[in-house]
Design a binder for these strands. Sequence first.
DNA 1: ATAAATAATTTGACCTTCAAATTAGAACCA
DNA 2: TGGTTCTAATTTGAAGGTCAAATTATTTAT
Lengths: 150, 150
Amino acid sequence: MEIEQRLNEVLVKLFRLVNSIEEQAVKTEEYKNITTNDMHVIEAIGIGSPKNMTAVAKRLGVTTGTLTIAVNGLVKRGFVERVRSEEDRRVVLVSLSEKGKEVFAHHQKFHEEMIEAVVSRLDEGEKGVLEKALKNLNDFFSEKSGKRLR
Amino acid sequence: MEIEQRLNEVLVKLFRLVNSIEEQAVKTEEYKNITTNDMHVIEAIGIGSPKNMTAVAKRLGVTTGTLTIAVNGLVKRGFVERVRSEEDRRVVLVSLSEKGKEVFAHHQKFHEEMIEAVVSRLDEGEKGVLEKALKNLNDFFSEKSGKRLR
DNA sequence: ATAAATAATTTGACCTTCAAATTAGAACCA
DNA sequence: TGGTTCTAATTTGAAGGTCAAATTATTTAT
């Protein structure tokens, strides 16, 4: 079979599984009540300095209204802290609580495991090839979507 | 920077973009009113012989109730045909209409373009490396999800 | 001071999803 | 045969996510 065809197949399979895997990676014993959606918001807020709602919404590609609702739930469950900015009182700054940071770290670990699984049987040259290929894919998607990657 | 870290970044970016890209790839001039969700159902039904609801639902990883609703919309808009089986009158067989097949083919073309974008600047050896890496990733996901790939 | 712009929230509508209840038909078997 | 059980699909009701538009509060510009 053509290598192009095999690549297509493996990519299709990957994409098909991404959602359900993320879900399972997120829902472990300790963090039962976290949806994939919650996880994406937590990732977008990140462990850096507090971010305003508009910036996080933009990063996620949703409206601020949608984000408000998601953040409501995360605040209620103690994963996110919400403070009104002193400099500009229209602005709301969100950041991860200790509990939120734990979840973030846990998810990071999943990503690390994933990368480890991919590269553990590749030598240095092969890793370089993989990176090149993924960048091509990324460029293709960026063009198609018109979005800039962050 | 570590190559592992760069690979992680590029993979995260990819996954983040997959949904919005699929959406845009699907919604062209001719096929405005098709969601990503519709597209996944159309893909799962496929161009082969008619399939029953349970099989398609399993392939998609949703309940048959959910699939019923999705298929209602696709039938109403003329992309899918729904026939009750003669051998077993409990069974409903779904298949793509001509219009549905056109959409399927259109989406196939998108996949081909995507692969072309990835491999066009790789030589044969590099393609082999990429395939190996993607298989590792696939294996990792298969294990994590417990699902068998189809 | 007043008007315009900006940040976030609220509201209302729509869609997707699931679990559970329901309907209809098939399979078993005594 | 008749009755029980199983199976396939649909329907229903609740929950969650999404958006656009309206609203509230605050800042910036004139």
